[in-house]
Design a protein around this nucleic acid. Structure first.
Lengths: 93, 93
DNA sequence: TAATTTGGTTTATAAAATAAACCGCTTTAT
DNA sequence: ATAAAGCGGTTTATTTTATAAACCAAATTA
């Protein structure tokens, strides 16, 4: 049995990737609301996804407030697709 | 976003349930081979699934050797189906 | 009968998820 | 102007989980 990419097999990271796959870009606040996660948890998981090269995290400003924008990278897309593929074996979808 | 049943959202437990969903009954050794897991890990995860009422674990004998047989319960089936359903939202399958 | 293997369980360790505390900057109210 | 409250996060600590390592009893093999 193929193993499920442990980086994606986490509720919150999967949810984040799921959102980003459909949206081209999303900021921290939007992700926190959409995934109903705490800021602390989200911050940690975004770091892990970024460290893996699955997403980019850009810290900028919107007016004078900070704004952190995330995007999925090609590698992230590929990993997500592979993950879904592996899951099909488990769930036989 | 609905949460993924944490009892099923674990690589090994999901693999075990996946096997049991298709097979009516399976013993410890078969599960260990099919999931390519260590006996220790498998033992622990079977206990958790059993404690949740998702599977039954019956310790008996085959000849004079012990044989531990597992089956998925109706509750287990329901939970698995619900889990798959929730996953569809994440993955949009 | 002494190893070895089989079928597991229990216990210890490593890794992950989550929450709690905190920090700097802004805005609002006084 | 200044204190207090809120926003957007990060860091650190705690709890849970997953995994591996060590172990055990019964059966088999040498």
């Amino acid at each position: 049995m193929k193993e499920l990419d442990p980086l994606l097999h986490s509720q919150l990271r999967l949810a984040v990737m799921s959102v980003l796959m459909n949206v081209e870009e999303a900021d921290f606040v939007y992700l926190r609301e959409k995934t109903e996660s705490t800021a602390g948890n989200l911050s940690v998981q975004l770091d892990k996804l970024a460290a893996a090269g699955y997403i980019t995290v850009e810290k900028g400003f919107s007016g004078r407030k900070t704004r952190t924008v995330c995007r999925v990278t090609p590698a992230g897309r590929a990993a997500f697709v592979a993950y879904v593929d592996t899951l099909r074996e488990y769930l036989n979808l």
